[in-house]
Simulated assay, not measured.
Amino acid sequence: MAGDLRPTMRDPVAFEGFYRRHVEQVSRFVARRVPVPHLVDDLTTEVFMAAIDAAGTYRADRGSEVAWLYGIARNVVASEHRRAARELDKSEREAGRRHLDADDIARLEVRIDAERAAGAMLSAIAGLPKALRAVAELVDIDGLPVADAAAALRIRVGTARVRLHRAHRLLRTGPSEELAMEGTS
């Protein structure tokens, strides 16, 4: 079947190629949402581990491999945020983390600093309703085409376009004007 990633995920050489093609994009996606270098590294690894398990769910006709990986990454990051909210004790959060050497930390800090520019936009987008925020993050922050963002969110392309338009209008006009405009339409 075209677009079936299961053979790629079972073949170590093919998987290495898949990983190398996408690891930077996935790591940047995670770094924009998680400011802790150890966590960026761990969650990026979790995304690829989850991709191995979910390889049978990839459908090329629904979007690119990157869009599919971003969908997985959104779930992994959301799961981590929920876990962190439940677990307040820092020593428990650090337990089981792989120790990074100074070069790993420096590399991840550089990546986090490079992604800091997206922070202002993420702050503005954070105030949007959840459905609008998800599309705006994938398109405006992560640079996905609308069709790929729709695939990552498992919604229709038309729905993604409408949500993106509404998100942009809200970001320009503010929530009170948007609500007033929707009340008249």
Rank of each mutant, 00 (worst) to 15 (best):
M49I: 12
A51Y: 10
I52F: 10
A55Y: 10
A55I: 03
G56M: 05
A60E: 14
A60L: 10
R62C: 00
R62S: 04
G63V: 02
V66G: 00
V66M: 03
W68V: 02
L69Q: 07
Y70M: 11
G71V: 06
I72K: 00
I72Y: 00
I72A: 03
A73M: 01
R74T: 06
R74M: 06
N75W: 12
V76Q: 05
V77Y: 02
A78H: 12
S79K: 13
E80P: 04
R82N: 11
R83N: 09
R83F: 14
A84S: 14
A84K: 10
A85G: 08
A85C: 05
A85W: 07
R86Y: 11
L88H: 15
K90G: 14
E92I: 14
E92A: 15
E94L: 15
E94F: 13
G96M: 07
R97S: 13
L100A: 11
D101R: 08
A102H: 10
I105Y: 05
E109G: 04
V110I: 12
V110M: 11
R111W: 03
A114P: 03
A114W: 09
R116W: 05
R116L: 06
R116S: 12
A117W: 10
A117V: 11
G119V: 05
A120E: 13
M121Q: 07
L122M: 14
S123W: 10
A126P: 06
A126E: 10
L128P: 02
L128H: 01
L128D: 00
L128R: 00
P129V: 09
K130Y: 10
L132G: 13
A134L: 07
A134S: 15
V135S: 04
V135Y: 07
A136W: 02
E137M: 04
E137Y: 00
L138G: 00
L138P: 00
V139P: 01
V139N: 02
D140G: 08
L144M: 09
P145S: 13
V146T: 08
V146H: 04
A147C: 08
D148A: 06
D148T: 01
A152G: 09
A152T: 04
R154N: 14
R154V: 08
R156C: 08
R156Q: 14
A160T: 00
R161C: 01
V162Q: 06
R163E: 04
R163I: 03
H165Q: 15
R166G: 07
H168G: 15
H168M: 12
L170Q: 13
L171G: 07
R172G: 08
T173D: 14
G174E: 08
G174Y: 08
P175L: 11
S176H: 13
